[in-house]
């Protein structure tokens, strides 16, 4: 209720601030994605993912970011409804006035991006949260340690019948692990599904992480997914081109002096960032 009562400019200021915060996040995500392209069997990418998944500062930011996304959307919807209400009877001839590119369709481009975000979340973020099943990666070193611990216990005769069986299965699985399931530097078992994880690491092993690298690669091998991904980033380009320059206008910062810099930034966000994202699936798809 309080949100609705804010002055129209205040709402817009919130909108801009939230959007601007999201903008800061994009280059990081892009940089991360670009790591996929490095021909190291996902080494860098995995490290980055590991860092992002475990660092506490990142975790705090993650919460803030999520809140921003939600508020940005809520604000956007409130504003769109209010703005719609200010013209109850529309024109018969659609408006032909010159407008800033993309500016008229922010709510729609935003909506499409939201749909993509949901797909993206289901695919990747939910896997991380353990809400859906994905592919996983474990450090060989850790698996071996766990195995050795169990083997020790076995020698001491502390293991039950069932555990013994499991240990045997684990041993067999590790021995017969195919080359694709071992990372290039042989430090990780990769691309394991939940079942495989349980077999390879044992039922009570929890020190595994989602294998985003291989999940992404798999997705990017699907032409439909690549197409959706590319389209979304074209839409994102449109959204960002207006959004970036718009935030300066909203905050009254687009003084003549900085106009060029602002335009440059808008182009950067509209071209470089979406390109950076889009190039990954393209290369992955065409070099599979």
């Amino acid at each position: 209720m309080k949100l609705i009562k804010l002055a129209s400019i205040s709402k817009k200021l919130c909108m801009g601030a939230l959007g601007a915060f999201l903008l800061v996040f994009l280059p990081f995500h892009m940089g991360m994605n670009l790591c996929i392209l490095r021909d190291d069997g996902g080494e860098w990418y995995r490290n980055v993912c590991h860092f992002m998944g475990t660092n506490y500062i990142v975790k705090v930011f993650e919460v803030i970011l999520l809140a921003c996304v939600v508020f940005h959307i809520v604000m956007g919807i409130i504003l769109a409804i209010e703005n719609k209400m200010s013209r109850p009877v529309g024109y018969a001839v659609a408006n032909k006035s010159k407008t800033h590119s993309g500016s008229k369709y922010m709510i729609w481009t935003g909506g499409i991006i939201l749909v993509f975000l949901i797909i993206h979340f289901v695919d990747f973020y939910f896997a991380k949260m353990g809400l859906v099943e994905g592919k996983y990666v474990v450090k060989v070193e850790k698996v071996e340690r766990a195995f050795q611990e169990k083997a020790m216990k076995m020698q001491q005769g502390q293991l039950k019948e069932a555990d013994l069986k499991e240990l045997q299965a684990q041993y067999m699985a590790i021995q017969s692990m195919s080359r694709e399931k071992v990372s290039k530097n042989e430090k990780y078992f990769i691309n394991l599904n939940k079942e495989e994880v349980q077999v390879v690491c044992g039922k009570d092993f929890e020190d595994y992480e989602p294998d985003f690298y291989n999940m992404a690669k798999e997705k990017f091998h699907s032409p439909l997914y690549v197409l959706i991904y590319l389209l979304t980033f074209i839409i994102l380009a449109v959204h960002l081109f207006h959004g970036v320059s718009s935030v300066f206008q909203t905050y009254g910062l687009n003084v003549q002096m900085y106009q060029k810099a602002i335009n440059g930034l808008a182009w950067f966000y509209a071209v470089v960032i979406p390109m950076g994202f889009a190039i990954v699936p393209l290369i992955v798809y065409f070099t599979k």
């Binding site: 407008t99 800033h100 008229k104 922010m106």
Partner: peptide, 16 residues
Amino acid sequence: DELGFGGCTNTYACEA
């Protein structure tokens, strides 16, 4: 706002 005008979404049709 009270009078029922909408908010600005920086489309700049007004300027045009």
